[in-house]
């Protein structure tokens, strides 16, 4: 009788631990998804801002057709990218195109003084920062989630219910990680 009670108690204990692990896995997965959604919102916002910037700049930069074309192309590629890896690659390309654009802007002092341009530029800078910070947060959440999936004993529950590790959102090389530098002091 006593042994039976202990057994039942143990089983109940195991079930409770099991439920706890399962729930925390779901919670962590939702956090990963949520922080990915945040990156997505900001990426979309950047894609929306770029035409604004191009519109404002076009009046001043009549001879920079190729720069604008490469931005537009990179932007549409970035917009159609699907997976995490694809997105990271497309966004890196877009970053490259944008930094080239801002280098060219250096040659147009009137454009740099334009209030509209400054406003759009502030928005774009902020959006780029938001992407970087959202990515930072996303990678943190992915780390927590992946740790939980790979560590004992939660890995047992994770394999039973087919929780898969998430992919980090890394930019390809260290140079691309930096936001394009534009020096206005000169």
């Amino acid at each position: 009788m006593g042994i039976l009670l202990i057994l039942i108690g143990l089983i109940i204990l195991f079930v409770l631990i099991f439920i706890g692990i399962y729930n925390s896995l779901v919670q962590l997965r939702n956090r990963v998804r949520n922080s990915w959604a945040q990156i997505d919102v900001q990426l979309k916002r950047r894609h929306d801002l770029i035409p604004n910037l191009v519109e404002t700049a076009k009046g001043y930069m009549k001879h920079e057709r190729t720069t604008f074309e490469s931005i537009t192309k990179a932007r549409s590629e970035a917009m159609s990218a699907q997976s995490v890896g694809e997105k990271a690659r497309a966004e890196s390309n877009l970053n490259g195109a944008m930094s080239k654009f801002f280098l060219v802007v250096e040659n147009y002092p009137e454009l740099k003084a334009n209030q509209n341009f400054l406003a759009v530029q502030e928005e774009l800078t902020s959006t780029e920062n938001k992407i970087a910070f959202a990515r930072q947060n996303y990678n943190d959440q992915v780390l927590f989630f992946n740790n939980k999936i790979q560590m004992f004993p939660s890995n047992i529950v994770a394999t039973m219910f087919n929780f898969k590790t998430s992919e980090y959102f890394e930019l390809e090389s260290a140079t691309e990680r930096e936001v394009p530098k534009v020096d206005f002091t000169s």
């Binding site: 945040q38 902020s126 920062n129 910070f133 943190d140």
Partner: peptide, 16 residues
């Protein structure tokens, strides 16, 4: 002050 709001929002995102 758009920039102040932007910066606060950036930190809001970073700190989750």
């Amino acid at each position: 002050h758009p920039r102040l709001f932007n910066v606060v929002e950036e930190m809001k995102i970073a700190a989750n």
